[in-house]
């Protein structure tokens, strides 16, 4: 089985879909000849030609708008927004257009586009290269929002996203591109090759959208996380010695509510972790869902560990980042409450 990092897995997913489906076109800023600033599209223009993989002007609104038009024509566009922080110029096209097209046209038109965007911090990106804007999109009915945490999942979920007939926002935690980063920024980088989920089949496979994965079974507390925070949570669980069940949500919309509820009903405790800022973050939705479904099972208040409600700072990024120590503290609080 080939071993891939997350960038190679994403590249492989695009390669598989370009090969399988003539309707797939890949475009965005610097994605053509150069292969993308993170190399996710490296070699694809050379392999499939400029009519399938091409560069665009620096106009995120234009990229998404033209993708909607192509989708309405019958193509299956996959666009790259170079950083999730740059997605806001395309917000209107995503929220008012892509998300509502099927509904407002009574099902006559739809836009099966996939919007890839690297998200998250930990790379000294400062306020404009580090954001995690997923909750802005999960709030929008009509969109699906996906965030993988491993190379294997990234490929399977991206293929599912491309094959999906609804618009999908596909956030790629860029701190995970080269390794399963656990939040210990002062330690040497662990490469993906030492991780089981770096074994990625060459061919086609899809991971259904809307299904969470239990990445560590446990009995005492349920940890809900996605993206980079899955690995941070695993480290915190390991270091704190709590027998936690760690769930990687993988898809935020549609959300695997039944999977979450089944776990929390069993453990009676819940810690929610995300890198995005706290107020109105996706953790708020998760807390509401857990409270609605599991109130009588809860033995402790639901905890959430998030980025602070400040712009992502440059020099102090590790003080912003909800690292394993903060997750461990939350686990401890959850376990202390009876």
């Amino acid at each position: 089985m080939p071993v891939m990092n997350m960038i190679q897995a994403i590249n492989s997913a695009l390669d598989v879909m370009l090969e399988r489906d003539d309707d797939v076109v890949v475009f965005g800023e610097d994605v053509g000849y150069f292969g993308g600033v993170f190399r996710a599209t490296a070699g694809l223009q050379q392999k499939y030609g400029r009519m399938r993989v091409f560069d665009t002007p620096i106009a995120e609104g234009g990229i998404v708008a033209t993708a909607i038009g192509m989708g309405a024509y019958g193509l299956r566009p996959v666009t790259e927004i170079q950083f999730a922080d740059y997605i806001y110029p395309a917000f209107d096209q995503l929220v008012s257009e892509a998300a509502r097209l099927r509904y407002r046209s009574g099902g006559e038109f739809w836009a099966p586009l996939t919007v890839r965007a690297p998200c998250g911090g930990g790379i000294y990106g400062g306020p404009t290269h580090s954001q995690s804007p997923e909750s802005l999109f999960t709030h929008v009915c009509g969109l699906k929002t996906v965030i993988p945490s491993t190379p294997y999942d990234a490929k399977g979920l991206l293929i599912a996203a491309i094959e999906d007939d609804d618009p999908v926002i596909f956030f790629e935690p860029k701190r995970l591109y080269n390794g399963p980063f656990d939040g210990h920024h002062d330690r040497p980088v662990t490469p993906w090759s030492k991780h089981a989920a770096s074994e990625v089949p060459d061919g086609h496979y899809a991971i259904p959208l809307g299904k969470a994965a239990v990445v560590r079974p446990g009995s005492e507390v349920t940890v809900l996380a996605y993206g980079t925070m899955v690995h941070v949570a695993l480290a915190a669980v390991h270091e704190s010695g709590v027998d936690a069940e760690v769930i990687d949500l993988r898809t935020l919309m549609p959300l695997d509510i039944d999977g979450i509820a089944a776990s929390v009903a069993r453990t009676g405790r819940c810690v929610i972790v995300h890198e995005a800022t706290r107020t109105s973050g996706f953790g708020a939705e998760l807390m509401a869902v857990v409270q609605e479904r599991c109130f009588w099972n809860l033995q402790a208040p639901i905890e959430r560990v998030t980025g602070w409600d400040v712009p992502y700072p440059h020099a102090l990024e590790w003080d912003y980042f909800p690292g394993p120590d903060r997750v461990a503290a939350a686990l401890k609080r959850a376990m202390e409450t009876s």
Binding site: V25, G61, G62, A65, T66, A67, I68, G69, M70, G71, A72, Y73, G74, L75, P77, Q93, E97
Partner: peptide, 11 residues
Amino acid sequence: FPQAVGWAMAS
């Protein structure tokens, strides 16, 4: 307006 351009590009 840009969606029409996208449709035309696809065509």
